[in-house]
Design a binder for these strands. Structure first.
Length: 488
RNA sequence: CGGGGAGUGGCGCAGCCCGGUAGCGCAUUCGCUUUGGGAGCGAAGGGUCGCAGGUUCAAAUCCUGUCUCCCCGACCA
């Protein structure tokens, strides 16, 4: 029997872990800080990947793949970049083991001349490669994405939200002009925003990071920020305008139309399996995971109910016909005809796995020519006619998708405050949490002070909060409010 | 890296103080009865108690060392 899930309001961390476990998404591996993504979790990631990949292709990008290992020297070429990542790199120093009475140990003879770094991100190896690909303005732009795993030696990990190794995509583009690169950066931010909202049903705030939160090596970092149900923010994706930093570091120049030799402009952008963590914490409840229909590996599950073999057959026939109808309409449906579990158990299990819609069919339904429909998001049940059930379900899935977004947006809005003073800020942060808009003087010192005193950080400087005011801490003039929250 | 907690069948735990070489619940397998919200009964299989030393006639239990994981902080997608 599945273990009960800890109440969400009681212990949010435990609740989160329970949901992940009960939904069979992932589990801790024996390797410190790493996770095993189970088939259910992988199917979800694959759907997310497909949605994103289509959007990348639609905006002119192609996929490629670069090596996992990066020569140590590459990492030292961009000063800011090194500083940001040096402290969390896995380093390969040797190439083989040797047997020593029953066990193995590292063969000291095999020490590498130059150590290899397991990529924490691929800017360096990619820009080293781009140097060879770019000579003329005709070679630009280069619009490439890579689906890969990366490793960051994190101190403390949490399933999906922060693991030592994680799956992600990283886009790396090269452009002839600053304007084009900046437009690309914002375009991809918009792709992320659209994906988060339309596929994940997760509302996000877009904006630009402060200098202290900026990606190591970027000129400007843009982000999407989501709010979790416990009132903490999650950085769900980033898009960086890299300026000419990497072009300078890796000497990537092109000859322009005017004959001049110029440095290339760059962007990079990425989202990771962390999105799954965001998805969980945006929609799920005490019964387990809730997945929006667009991303659900299984959108509809049909549960047959019967008392004897005769009923079993008629119900199976009835259920299979519905299954075929749903499949023919492109609905991802399955029939749960396992005989070793009772319906109640299956209901609970499907709910824990977040399947958006359940259809229960029993002898009564066969007789009355109807079905019992249960929505995962609202946990409400209704009886619907068997006739036209395919179209009905298809529409309902669409409704669930938009309802999930609306519910999440409403919750986010209710958890968003605007304050005018630092006292009010601290009060709201302690009593309510969530997103808080407040004026800030734009200095790193004030930002750090607020962080030290309240643990809240500036999640982003949003695009749409222009209004004159004065910093809630120092009273210095401010052109706009910025978005604060405690964050994951 | 600092503070706390924990390592005992697949999972969750008890036993440890006060040594006598393992037990409970769930899961698994088989059988019968069940099936509209996490089924019941009966039987069976499965663990040298994280690892390494030490004390002892005897160690899950006491001592020393060590590794790992989880939680809270600092750092980060």
């Amino acid at each position: 029997m599945a273990q009960k899930i800890t109440k969400r309001d009681q212990d949010y961390s435990q609740w989160y872990l329970d949901v992940v476990k009960e939904a069979k998404l992932a589990e801790h591996s024996p390797v410190r800080g790493c996770m095993v993504i189970r088939p259910t979790g992988m199917a979800l990631w694959e759907n997310m990947r497909q949605g994103l990949d289509t959007m990348f292709k639609d905006t002119g990008h192609e996929n490629a793949y670069f090596p996992l290992f990066i020569p140590k020297s590459f990492l030292s070429k961009e000063a800011q970049h090194v500083e940001g990542f040096a402290k969390e790199c896995a380093v390969i120093t040797h190439s083989r083991l040797k047997s020593v009475d029953g066990g193995v140990e590292v063969d000291p003879e095999s020490r590498l001349e130059e150590e290899l770094i397991v990529r924490p991100t691929s800017e360096t190896i990619i820009w080293d490669t781009y140097r060879g690909w770019i000579q003329s303005y005709r070679d630009l732009p280069i619009l490439i994405n890579q689906w890969a795993n990366v490793v960051r030696w994190e101190m403390r990990t949490r399933l999906f939200l922060r693991t030592m190794e994680f799956l992600w995509q990283e886009g790396h583009t090269a452009h002839a002009t600053q304007k084009e690169a900046e437009e690309e950066t914002l375009q991809m931010l918009e792709v992320y925003r659209t994906f988060a909202q339309d596929f994940m049903a997760m509302p996000v705030i877009t904006g630009v990071k402060t200098e202290s939160e900026r990606f190591a090596g970027a000129v400007e970092t843009y982000c999407i920020e989501a709010l979790m149900q416990d009132g903490k923010a999650l950085q769900a994706g980033t898009s960086h305008f890299l300026g000419q930093n990497f072009a300078k570091a890796f000497d990537v120049k092109f000859q322009d139309k005017d004959g001049e030799l110029k440095l290339v402009w760059a962007t990079s952008w990425g989202v990771s399996t962390r999105l799954i963590g965001g998805l969980i914490m945006t929609h799920s409840d005490d019964n387990g995971l809730v997945i929006p229909p667009k991303l659900a590996p299984t959108q509809v599950v049909i549960v047959p109910i019967y008392r004897n073999d005769e009923q079993r057959e008629s119900v199976a026939e009835y259920g299979n016909a519905i299954l075929s109808e749903l499949k023919s309409l492109g609905v991802r449906a399955k029939l749960d005809n396992r005989d070793n579990y009772k319906p109640g158990f299956k209901f609970a299990e499907h709910e824990a796995q977040g399947i958006p819609l359940r259809i229960a069919v029993g002898p009564r339904d066969v007789e009355n020519n109807n079905v019992e429909l249960a929505r995962r998001d609202t946990l409400s049940k209704s009886f619907e006619s068997r006739d036209g059930i395919g179209e009905f379900v298809k529409n309902l899935l669409g409704t669930i998708q938009t309802d999930l977004f609306e519910t999440a947006r409403k919750r986010r809005d209710e958890m968003t405050s605007e304050v005018e003073s630092y006292d009010e800020f601290k009060k709201v942060l302690n009593e309510k949490g969530g997103f808080i808009y407040a004026h800030w003087d734009g200095t790193a010192e004030t930002e750090e002070l607020i962080k030290q005193q309240t643990k809240a950080t500036i999640r982003c400087i949003p695009f749409d909060k222009t209004e004159e005011g004065s910093c809630m801490v120092t009273g210095k003039p401010s052109k706009q409010k910025v978005l604060f929250a405690k964050a994951y």
